[in-house]
Amino acid sequence: MTRLVGAARSRLTYPDRGATARLPLPAGYHHLRHRTRIGQGRRVFEAAGVAVTTFLAHRTSGMRVRADARAVRPGARVEVGIGLGPLRITAPCEVVWTAYEPTRTGFAYGTLDGHPETGEESFLVSTDADGTVWFTVSAFSRPGTWYTRLAGPVVPFCQRQYARRLGRTVRRLAAGA
């Protein structure tokens, strides 16, 4: 575990805390919802849930993750980074809700000061009555810095591509468990 210096002083940068747990997502943001079929059965559901709630899926997808807890819990601070050296972008977040339930496992984090976007993103593994396992990424966001405003439609495109990549990663991790 890594203690995130300065994170304790930061606050969420948006007023809609927890809004990814319900629909519709709040107005005034770009919305993302991407669903990936992961597989079938309890073993797949449990393996996918562990991959998501321990940040293994994020790390395996190429993100650098620093968190102050091994598994997600409300209030935990997380810093997600991508890129190399001076081109690294870091994104500080706080876990705003978790689900550790018989048919749903996952969490959402919200943006803190210093994040290039403003909003919230959830990562949820669920299972249908027939045992089909799904991974869903839901998010609402808008630019939080000059460079994400300048990037315009490139940011939502990259977010969707990352959600797809994360879905493929969760599927692979759950199949290999």
Score class of each variant (00 low, 15 high):
residue 5 V to P: 09
residue 54 T to N: 11
residue 151 A to S: 11
residue 50 V to C: 08
residue 160 R to L: 15
residue 157 F to Y: 12
residue 136 T to G: 02
residue 169 T to Y: 03
residue 52 V to Y: 02
residue 21 A to F: 04
residue 107 F to M: 04
residue 174 A to Q: 01
residue 135 F to D: 07
residue 57 A to R: 11
residue 53 T to L: 09
residue 3 R to S: 11
residue 148 T to E: 07
residue 152 G to V: 02
residue 123 F to R: 05
residue 143 P to V: 02
residue 135 F to V: 05
residue 149 R to W: 13
residue 25 L to C: 02
residue 127 T to P: 03
residue 158 C to L: 15
residue 77 R to N: 11
residue 139 A to G: 09
residue 37 R to L: 12
residue 95 V to W: 09
residue 142 R to N: 03
residue 170 V to E: 02
residue 157 F to E: 10
residue 71 A to T: 15
residue 14 Y to L: 04
residue 29 Y to P: 02
residue 128 D to V: 00
residue 93 C to Q: 02
residue 42 R to M: 12
residue 120 E to D: 07
residue 12 L to H: 11
residue 40 Q to W: 12
residue 153 P to I: 03
residue 145 T to F: 00
residue 89 I to N: 08
residue 30 H to S: 13
residue 55 F to R: 09
residue 57 A to G: 11
residue 148 T to R: 13
residue 137 V to I: 12
residue 47 A to F: 01
residue 22 R to E: 12
residue 145 T to S: 15
residue 118 T to C: 07
residue 48 A to T: 05
residue 56 L to W: 10
residue 68 D to A: 06
residue 85 G to F: 14
residue 82 I to W: 12
residue 90 T to H: 10
residue 108 A to Q: 03
residue 88 R to L: 05
residue 25 L to V: 01
residue 72 V to A: 11
residue 18 G to R: 04
residue 18 G to T: 10
residue 113 D to K: 13
residue 173 L to R: 01
residue 28 G to T: 04
residue 83 G to A: 06
residue 92 P to N: 07
